[in-house]
Structures are given as structure tokens and as C-alpha cells.
Write a protein that binds this DNA or RNA. Structure first.
Lengths: 254, 254
DNA sequence: CCTAACTCCGTATGCTGCACGGTATTTCGG
DNA sequence: CCGAAATACCGTGCAGCATACGGAGTTAGG
């Protein structure tokens, strides 16, 4: 990645704050960057990131492949722009209630977003782009726990913890859904193929605990996995742990 | 993916338990499946999953491309075999200490493994393969908290929580390292390009809390992010939260 | 008015996974 | 001992990908 691309992409990120660029020579672009980004999001929503290609974005707009490169420097940068764009969809309402309720809202918002745009989980950002919507959200998330009694460092760590956990839970959930929908093999068929081999191959009694736990979980979930429930369980534990951190030290303010 | 491939891959997964297949006609294979898998792991270790290709595996063994397909059904299945193989590297020592120490060992083992083989974080398993090493580990992880006072369902959820969080933390850490190493742009250069644009574009005072928290964190970490420290912070919170769950109910056994 | 700058696009390069079919090799059935 | 079947290995081809390069047409500034 070239430095000039970094600069150009950053300028594209903050295009609203920077205002319309000066009129320049040559033909006008047929579309706006926003339209290209939205076309990209549409493709990614429908087909996922692995199947996301520059050609499909071009086709969707009625452009030919190479014209896309006059709008954005490359595929990776377009994806970065798509990510920040999508982060602008969610509202950032004023916070209500105590920090626990607030963090629940923060986590749930991310959870919902990952389900609305599952390809977000497939983005491999080497270095995260700093865009306006991401920045606004980061500020909003920190505001949720401002004044709750954390040090600045802990505020960073708490939001990181919530974000990381939510992302991992959503990833597991989305992967499970995708497996059921698009692999062409249902859960039942999958087990019908697996079971005979595993019966033949797993030494009887080799997995006493996982056998017991897996059976219980399977019955309770009515599936191999209930990610929504695991998410709520994990979030509750994490919030309890954060509560313990606050309770274990002398209160500063009310 | 075809059902027969599922069956074939499962048989490959459990190849040791199934024993050597009957002698059959035709020339012997020049290599063993294990050698192909190990070659694949070597390629993935060196170049990461995106650059992992069947051709490179073939080259490494001195085979031509298409010969690899006589060993494994396809790229995805080879990756599945690589994953289970890698999970056999870690020792599963008898558990010592209380459940808290044990879960720390469980988490740390995964953390180390993701750093030894960062490509594990890039694997997109639609449906996870059930292999011997993965099964052994799952049993070992559950054993760590057997008898600690959890219900069977909670045992599943606790291990899922630890796994999900560790995976997400490791992902963040590995991504940060990769950015620094391979993007060709150092942290300093990155900020040198970012700062002027952001100064021009972020309204002054628009991000009071993130500005303050980011500065504190940056000074404390000596970097944008200290993932190792965030991991330890998060894990401590989670363990506290789990402790709270156990403490909040009548003890069953000692 | 002319030229620089720009958009759009055709073409080419070098990757990828993998389907198909051919040839050489080995073993089993008779 | 011989023929047929099965298998390993590989050459070729197809379709898809990102993107580099250069050309043709368009617009605005000097």
C-alpha cells in the first residue's frame, strides 16, 4: 500500500468534512463515491466478502471494471470505506440508566450490526482506518462509562473487552447460520454422515465429559449451538466481572 | 461440498484410529497424507492463509499441482486437516490448582497457539470438522472445570466464553503485529500521514473523551494498543464474573 | 484555442481452484 | 502368467480474480 493511497483514502473517509473538491478538468464522474460504496455494501451483503469483487461492484453500477479504480484506489480501500459507512447506520442515542444497561446497549448494537452485515466479520484490516463514523461511535461507547469510576486506561480496556467478546460471539453465530444455509447440507444430513464414522472411530468412553455435556447442551439448545444464548451468558459474566472491579475499590464519586 | 467428500475427509481426520487402508492397486503414493498436511502447515505459517495455495503445497513436496488432489479432496478440506493437526501440538497436561488457574491455562494455551499459527484466525470454517485432536482438547478443557459446581450447560457456556474471548483478543493482537511488519508502513509513518488529515478534519473538541482516553492509553502502552495487557485484563474480568456466578448459589459439593 | 487533466475502458499479466482426460504403474482375478 | 481394473501423477483448459498500462474521448483553465 502506498502512502499516497493512505492519504487519498483518508480524504475519502472524511469527504463530508472536507467538502466538495474544487472543479477540475476532464469529464465529470458518472457516480459519486457514496454510490460506489453503497454498491459495494450491497454486493457484500448479498454475497459475502469472499465473493465480493471489483467487477461485481462495477456491474451493479453499469460501469466497466477498471472505471472503479478512478473512484477508489483499490479493493482494500473500498472495503475500508464500506466499513466506516456501515458504522454510520446505527443511531448513537443519549445514554440512559446505569453503566451496566449502557454497556448492554453498546454490545447489542454491535451484535445487531454484525448480523445486518455479516461480511464485517470477514474484513481483515491490517490497520484500522480512522473514519468519522468509527470515531463517533468510539466516543459514544466511551461516553457510556464516563464517570462510572474507571481509570482512563480501564475505560479503554472495558470497551475493548466488550467489543472483542461481542465480535467473537457474533462470528460464531454467523458462521453457524451460514453453514446451515449455504453449504447445501443440513444439520441432520451432516450428522447422518458424521455419526457412522465417529461411532466407528471414537473409542467408547474416550470422551465421557464432552459426551455428557454435549448431549445436555444439544437437548437444551435444540441445536448444536445456541449462540444468542451463549452471547447473553458471556455478557452477563463479563458485566459481573466489571462490577466486581468497581466494587473492590473505594468509591471516588457518587 | 459433496457428501462423499465429508466422509472422505472425516476418514482422513481419524486416519490413525482407522489404521492403514488395505493395499490397493495402482502405484503407491510418493508421500503420506501427514506429509501433505505438514507441508500445508509450513506454507500457511510462512505466508498466511490468503497466500496459501495448492500449488505452493505441491511445489514444497516436489509434486505437480494436480497430484495434491489425490491426497485431499480440496483446499478447504486440506485446511480442515491442518487445523486438527495443529491442535495436536499442544500438550494436554493433567489439571492442577483450582478452576481459576485451570481456565487460565486453557486460555493461555489457545492464545499461544494462535500466535504460533496465526493463520488459524483466518480459517473460515462453515461447519467445524470433528477431528481427534480437537475432540481431545474439548474433553480436556471441560475436564478443567468438571466438579467446580457448574451445570452441564454452564460448562459448555464457560468454555465457549473463554474460547471466544481468547480468539478475539488474539485476532486483534495478530492483526496489529501484521500491520506493523508487512504493510511496509511503520506506526510512525502511519501517523505521520494520518495526523495532518485528521487535524484538518476532526472538529476541535468533537472527541473529548476518546482524545483523553486515547492519549492515556497510548502513553501507558507505548503503542496504540497493548493486546497482551488487554487480554489479561479481559480474562481477569471474565474469571471474576464466573466466580460471582459460582458464589451466588448454594454450594453442592466441597 | 490548445493543452493538461481527467474519465472510462480494452487489453494483458499473473495469480487462483479445480474439472477432465491421458499415461504409466501396480495389483487382483482368473 | 495374462488381462483388466484401479490408482498416481500430471498436462491442459476454464473461469475467475486484482490491477498495471495505455489509448480515446471529454472538459476546463490559461
Amino acid at each position: 500500500m502506498e502512502k499516497q493511497d493512505v492519504d487519498r483514502t483518508l480524504s475519502l473517509m472524511w469527504r463530508r468534512a472536507l467538502g466538495v473538491p474544487q472543479g477540475s478538468r476532464g469529464p465529470r464522474q458518472r457516480f459519486s463515491v457514496d454510490e460506489v460504496i453503497r454498491a459495494g455494501i450491497a454486493v457484500a451483503d448479498e454475497e459475502g466478502l469472499p465473493a465480493f469483487s471489483m467487477r461485481k461492484v462495477a456491474d451493479r453500477l453499469g460501469l466497466k471494471l477498471m472505471s472503479i479504480y478512478t473512484y477508489v484506489p483499490s479493493r482494500d480501500e473500498l472495503i475500508g470505506l464500506m466499513v466506516d459507512d456501515v458504522m454510520g447506520e446505527a443511531e448513537l442515542p443519549p445514554h440512559r440508566g446505569d453503566w451496566r444497561e449502557r454497556l448492554t446497549v453498546v454490545a447489542r448494537q454491535m451484535w445487531d450490526e454484525f448480523h445486518r452485515h455479516p461480511w464485517l466479520l470477514q474484513v481483515e484490516q491490517s490497520r484500522p482506518w480512522i473514519g468519522p463514523n468509527g470515531s463517533d461511535r468510539w466516543e459514544w461507547q466511551l461516553t457510556a462509562i464516563e464517570g462510572a469510576g474507571f481509570t482512563d486506561l480501564e475505560m479503554d480496556q472495558v470497551i475493548t473487552l466488550i467489543s472483542d467478546f461481542t465480535m467473537a460471539s457474533a462470528r460464531a453465530d454467523v458462521a453457524a447460520r451460514r453453514a446451515a444455509e449455504q453449504s447445501g447440507i443440513s444439520d441432520a444430513e451432516w450428522w447422518a454422515v458424521n455419526a457412522p464414522v465417529l461411532d466407528r472411530v471414537m473409542p467408547p468412553g474416550a470422551y465421557p465429559i464432552s459426551g455428557r455435556v454435549g448431549t445436555t447442551a444439544g437437548e437444551e439448545y435444540n441445536a448444536v449451538r445456541d449462540s444468542e444464548r451463549s452471547f447473553r451468558f458471556g455478557l452477563d459474566r463479563i458485566l459481573d466481572g466489571i462490577d466486581h472491579l468497581l466494587a473492590s475499590r473505594p468509591r471516588a464519586g457518587g
